[in-house]
């Protein structure tokens, strides 16, 4: 299977005067349609890694190749477009726009792309809403939904532009165990249905164990990289 995302010799330093190295020459690649998790203690550098994977942060050195495109040479606008078209984000604290309804939040990536909200787009949004089980609350403002519903909205939003990669930073970190189970099942189902690549950062051992590949990060280095058959 081909690699959708590749990291080559990624290093990251923080700070101007006193430099702290967070990542030490990481090499990683992710296959299209795979379902991966990254685990590690807090401060291990896993969130930094995810932000670099998502082009939200730039590495101090090294290359990131997304869908065959090296991001090193791209300017801010080109990066924004790449993010918009290829990457979907799911964060621990949902990060929906509280001023907008669930449906509007889900449609936002399409509007950022500059596409018209036509029948086709609406149909896709409705399909995703149905898929994540939000039909009843789709016209609620983000603040008028439960934590689980907000996270479902974030998942639907991440899928709206047919993102090929979904990066999730502790997507269930804020949810109870039942809801965690539901969200996991949902992500798994999407992975199978749309062949979307998932990279999930988690503390939760039970979630990590359900993924196909577990990468453990410690002190900015890869400690373990296990693939299930």
């Amino acid at each position: 299977m081909d690699n959708i995302l590749e990291l080559k010799n990624i290093t990251k330093f923080y700070g101007d005067k006193i430099k702290t190295q967070v990542l030490f020459g990481l090499d990683l690649s992710f296959e299209r349609g795979s379902f991966n998790s990254i685990i590690g203690q807090s401060g291990s550098g896993k969130s930094t890694l995810l932000n670099i994977l998502g082009t939200l942060d730039r590495p101090t050195d090294g290359d990131i190749i997304i869908n065959g495109k090296n991001t090193k040479t791209l300017n801010a606008n080109a990066l924004s477009q790449l993010r918009n078209e290829n990457l979907g984000f799911i964060f621990q604290f949902h990060y929906l726009l509280p001023e907008f309804t669930a449906l509007e939040n889900i449609l936002m990536p399409v509007r950022i792309l500059g596409k018209k909200i036509d029948k086709e787009v609406m149909a896709r949004a409705e399909e995703l809403i149905e898929l994540v089980g939000l039909s009843k609350v789709k016209n609620n403002l983000a603040t008028q939904m439960s934590g689980g519903q907000q996270q479902r909205t974030a998942i639907a939003r991440a899928l709206m532009n047919q993102a090929s990669i979904i990066l999730a930073d502790e997507p269930t970190g804020n949810l109870d165990s039942d809801t965690t189970e539901q969200i996991y099942d949902l992500m798994r189902m999407i992975n199978k249905k749309y062949q979307t690549t998932f990279i999930i950062i988690t503390h939760d051992q039970s979630v990590a164990e359900k993924t196909d590949r577990i990468i453990e990060i410690k002190d900015g280095r890869i400690l373990m990289d296990v693939r299930k058959k």
Partner: peptide
């Protein structure tokens, strides 16, 4: 926070 989310989704600085 909202601007950050929009930027993560790919909205341009402009």
């Amino acid at each position: 926070k909202q601007i950050g989310i929009l930027k993560a989704m790919g909205i341009t600085d402009k």
